[in-house]
Write a protein that binds this DNA or RNA. Structure first.
Lengths: 112, 112
DNA sequence: TTCTTATGCATAAGGAAATTATGTATATTT
DNA sequence: AAATATACATAATTTCCTTATGCATAAGAA
């Protein structure tokens, strides 16, 4: 991820969330989708993404399907059954985290 | 920070934000305030907090004032002029980050 | 009265997760 | 022809956190 310094720790959950919605995606597609959704605010680096995908696969949360498109390699990832369950938990955790962060940055004069 | 795995990278900004509001705070007070604001969701560990405070001080963003209260040491930190400026920037960055995260976790069926 | 918890600071060792820097290769745009 | 986009991958490094430990006083519980 570029130009951010923040972010850390939630990449895995974001990957799971996107796969849960799209069904299957390949690495490069994920980087583009994140860039699009955040209007360029979040840029996932390959150095972060690919190891993360491999780790999630090793944990049994993702499964991979290789394809050739336009003479270029693509590795489509999708959630396993276990991955679907984990996505629910991790997403809830991330949402809690976001709520906490909002509480912390909220100006004090704001009405609760 | 305990029970979280997320969070990383925003501790400094949170410290700056709290000091900007409170004027001055000491370390232990910051941990309690964060716990309170997030209803226990975010627990800052001393191992993260004190080095962060020292680093912000070394960077010239904080200045310290030592006090003895009830025969116990307290180190009150407050923003320097430079610290106040930096707080504005870092807070804006953190708010952008939070907005980005919200975009990413937002369910697709939600109306934009 | 002793043990635990709370208050208050600090640092060292270790690990997780990112960034940065490379590397390979094809396709497309300038 | 060169640069950019597409598509994967990994090694070295850095950043930032957790865990563990240490010291010290005060207050509350057993």
């Amino acid at each position: 991820m570029k130009n951010s310094k923040l972010y850390k720790g939630s990449l895995n959950t974001i990957i799971l969330k996107l796969l849960d919605e799209k069904g299957k995606m390949y690495g490069y597609e994920i980087t583009q989708k994140v860039k699009e959704l955040t209007r360029g605010g979040v840029k996932i680096t390959e150095g972060a993404l690919y190891p993360a995908l491999h780790k999630l696969e090793a944990e049994g949360l993702l499964e991979v399907e290789v394809a050739m498109v336009d003479n270029r390699l693509r590795k489509y990832y999708k959630l396993t059954t276990q991955g679907e369950k984990e996505t629910i938990n991790r997403l809830a955790e991330l949402e809690d985290f976001i709520r906490s962060m909002q509480q912390l940055v909220k100006p004090k004069w704001e009405i609760n």
